[in-house]
Nucleic acid binder design. Structure first.
Lengths: 219, 219
DNA sequence: ACAGGCATGATACGGATGTACCAAAAGAAG
DNA sequence: CTTCTTTTGGTACATCCGTATCATGCCTGT
C-alpha cells in the first residue's frame, strides 16, 4: 500500500471547503472550481478524490450530519432529567451561536436540493429527523412517568410538534424574521407550558449550557 | 397607447410558467429558456416583458404571495369563531392538497434563494409572515375573551410557535417524512390542546372545509 | 396610404460549469 | 537503476446560462 498522503484527511479537507461555501454563499455557488480554490487544491484533485460532484455533495452531507450529531451529544452532556435533555436537544438546533447557524444554514441549502433532485440523498437526509423524533418521544414518556408531563398527552405527536416548531423557528431566524434569542424564548415558553405547572425553573441556565463556548463540558 | 396585446396577461402567463417550473423542477431549473418554452413563447419575449431575470423572479414571487393570500381568504371563508379562523389559517398552509403542495414547494424553492442572495426579496418575502403572525395573535386574543383559551397565555408567543410548527410540519411533508394528513392530525392535536378543555368538537369538518374541492364556498 | 413605434423572432457573445483526457512527478518494489 | 502505481497538474470540450444585438412584422394614428 503506497499511502503517500492520507486519503481520508484530504477528503475531509475538501468536503469541509464545500460546506464552508455552502454556508456562506449557498450550495449553488459551490462549484467544483470554487471548492478547489477554497480548499487550496487544484480542480483535478477534487475530481480525483470525489469522482463526481454528486459524490462530493453526499460525502459533505454525511459529514454535516455527523457534526450536528456531535453537537447534540455535546449539548446533552451530562443532562439526566428528561426535561433537561429535551431542552438541550431542541435548543441546540436553533441557530443561536456561530456553529448552529452554520449547520442550520447549510442544512437549509441542502434542503431545496433534496426536494427537486430525486437523487440519492432522499433517504439519507430524512433518516436523522425520524430517529431524533423517536428519541424525543422517549424522553417525553420518561417525563410522564416522573409526573412532569400530563400522562394523557400523546408523546409521539408532541415530539413531532416540538421538532417541527424548532425547525420552523430556525427557518424564521435564518430568514432574518427574528433573532436567535427570540426564537429561544419562544421555545422556552412552550416548554414551560408543556412541563409541569410552569413553576419557573432554571430557564436561562438550561437553555445555554455554556456561558460563551459551545462546548459545555470543556471548561 | 397601442395596447396590441394585454401586457399584464402576458406577464401573468410567463410568471406562472416560472412558478410551474419552480414547483416541479425547482427554481434552479427555471432558466429563461425553460420558462419561455414552458410558457410557449420565445426567449426574446420573456426578455421583453421582464427585462432581467431578477425582475421575473420577483414578479413571480409577488404573484405566489397573492395566490397564497387568496387561498387563505378562501379557507377562512365565512368562519366567524376565532378557533375556526385559526384552524383555517394554519391548516390551509399545510401541503395537503395539490394547490397547497404547489404553493409550499414553490415557496421552499424561493427560500434558499433568499437566504444566500442578499438581493431585493429579503423584505418582500419576510413581510407576509410577520403580518400573518399579528393577525393570528389577534384571533387568539379574541379566543381568550371568549374563554376558549387560558387568559394567562401569551398570544404573541403562542401565535409565533404555532406558525413555526406549521412551517416545520410543511417542510417535513415536502421532505417525504410524513404525509399531509399526518401533519394535519398533529396540528389538530395541538389546537385541541390549546383551545378549551379539549371537548372533541367538529374535527374532521373544520380541518377540511370542502369535501373534495379546495374552494369551500363554491359548491 | 404612410410613417412610427410597439411587439416578436433569430442569433450571437462572453462566461461558467461538470467532466474527460494527456502527461508528468514521486515514492515503493524488484 | 528500473519499473510500476499512486498522485498531481494543465487544459480541452461540450453545454448551458443571462443578456445584447440586429432585423422584421404588424397595429394604430393621421
Amino acid at each position: 500500500m503506497t499511502a503517500k498522503v492520507d486519503h481520508e484527511e484530504r477528503r475531509r479537507q475538501i468536503a469541509e471547503a464545500l460546506l464552508r461555501i455552502a454556508d456562506t454563499e449557498g450550495l449553488q455557488s459551490a462549484s467544483m472550481r470554487a471548492v478547489a480554490t477554497e480548499a487550496g487544491v487544484s480542480l483535478r484533485l477534487v475530481q480525483y478524490y470525489f469522482t463526481t460532484k454528486e459524490g462530493l455533495l453526499l460525502d459533505a452531507l454525511a459529514r454535516l450530519g455527523a457534526q450536528l450529531q456531535a453537537r447534540m451529544e455535546r449539548w446533552i452532556g451530562e443532562a439526566r432529567a428528561p426535561r433537561d435533555v429535551v431542552t438541550a436537544i431542541l435548543s441546540c438546533i436553533l441557530p443561536t451561536d456561530a456553529e448552529s447557524r452554520r449547520i442550520t444554514r447549510t442544512y437549509a441549502a441542502y434542503y431545496t436540493l433534496v426536494l427537486n433532485d430525486p437523487a440519492v440523498p432522499a433517504k439519507q437526509a430524512a433518516q436523522p429527523p425520524v430517529v431524533l423524533e423517536g428519541f424525543l418521544a422517549k424522553q417525553l414518556r420518561a417525563a410522564q412517568e416522573t409526573g412532569e408531563i400530563d400522562a394523557r398527552r400523546d408523546t409521539g405527536v408532541t415530539a413531532a410538534g416540538l421538532l417541527a416548531m424548532v425547525n420552523g423557528l430556525g427557518s424564521s431566524v435564518l430568514g432574518g424574521q427574528r433573532s436567535g434569542e427570540e426564537a429561544l424564548a419562544i421555545l422556552a415558553y412552550h416548554l414551560d407550558e408543556l412541563f409541569g405547572p410552569s413553576r419557573s425553573r432554571s430557564r436561562s441556565r438550561s437553555l445555554s449550557p455554556s456561558p460563551s463556548r459551545s462546548s459545555p463540558s470543556a471548561d
